[in-house]
């Protein structure tokens, strides 16, 4: 195996262009997924490029009303950074444990593309754009176009996730709920993220997403658009209809962590609770 630790982003892009590598950032998913007998190497089926320490990918800046987060920023770094959006802080706070958060990166959470990745529902509703770079070009993709299934991404093998761009917005309500098997250090059974902007009792912005209830994070912009312009009271009067409409898109599965009935019921309950809080 040719496992390498490139020193610069440029070197990384050249290597990616020449070979078939798996990119490893903090390793908090891949090192577990590929674990083997103690004191033997993890059994990766591809050569590995370690990018955790690449200096070009560690930054967080605010430019042009847009937050730019380098992909190997760790969750713990983001948790304590003053620029990190509050909703993302809420999510990170209850992700895994301090030890994991010190290695886990935001780019890695996207790259792993798990339906239960807790930063994802937040990134979806903050309209996050993922900046992808290869030796040839830089392109930008909305996060929902990047992740297409569990572990599946529309990213080429010579590309790397360079940055996550989050347009700045103002909300009057934000909510992140994680429903795990216990209070900390657990994988989500369901997660929910919601933001809204209410002005003069009228919904001006409303976005919600659900994690771990489908192959990817569930967000439906059309249904969100339907409630824009409603008064909060109208929304609450019609809440059952709204819940039913969203419910049609929530099709969870049974697994070792929970069952589909619970996931669906609680997903709807969380949405209801968010709407009622507006």
């Amino acid at each position: 195996m040719k496992n390498l630790t490139p020193k610069t982003l440029k070197e990384t892009l050249i290597l990616l262009n020449e070979g078939d590598y798996k990119i490893l950032a903090g390793g908090t998913d891949l090192m577990i997924q590929n674990r083997a007998w103690s004191n033997t190497l993890p059994k990766f089926n591809k050569d590995i490029l370690l990018v955790f320490n690449l200096p070009e990918l560690k930054y967080i800046t605010l430019e042009d009303d847009c937050l730019h987060i380098g992909s190997t920023m760790t969750l713990e770094e983001l948790l304590y950074h003053k620029l990190t959006p509050k909703l993302l802080v809420e999510a990170i706070k209850i992700m895994a444990s301090p030890a994991i958060r010190n290695m886990a990166t935001l780019g890695g959470n996207i790259g792993n593309a798990s339906p239960a990745g807790d930063s994802l529902p937040v990134l979806y509703i903050l309209n996050a754009i993922v900046v992808i770079e290869s030796i040839e070009r830089t392109r930008e993709l909305p996060i929902e176009d990047l992740i297409i299934g569990p572990g599946k991404k529309t990213i080429q093998k010579n590309e790397i996730i360079k940055e996550i761009k989050i347009p700045m917005s103002n909300f009057t309500s934000i909510r992140f709920d994680k429903v795990g098997g216990r209070k900390a250090d657990a994988i989500s059974k369901i997660s929910f993220a919601g933001v809204a902007k209410v002005k003069n009792n009228t919904i001006q912005d409303f976005r919600v997403s659900f994690g771990a209830v489908g192959p990817t994070v569930v967000r439906n912009k059309e249904l969100e658009a339907n409630v824009i312009g409603l008064t909060v009271d109208d929304m609450k009067v019609n809440i059952q209809e709204i819940l039913n409409e969203f419910g049609n898109f929530i099709r969870p599965i049974d697994d070792q962590r929970s069952n589909k009935e619970y996931r669906k019921t609680v997903a709807i309950n969380l949405l209801k609770s968010f709407i009622l809080s507006l």
Binding site: T5, M31, I32, M103
Partner: peptide, 17 residues
């Protein structure tokens, strides 16, 4: 690692340079 806790069972050696 640099005063911060990590779980060494999932830390790839290459990251501690």
């Amino acid at each position: 690692i640099n005063d911060q806790i990590v779980n060494s069972c999932i830390v790839p050696l290459g990251t501690v340079e």
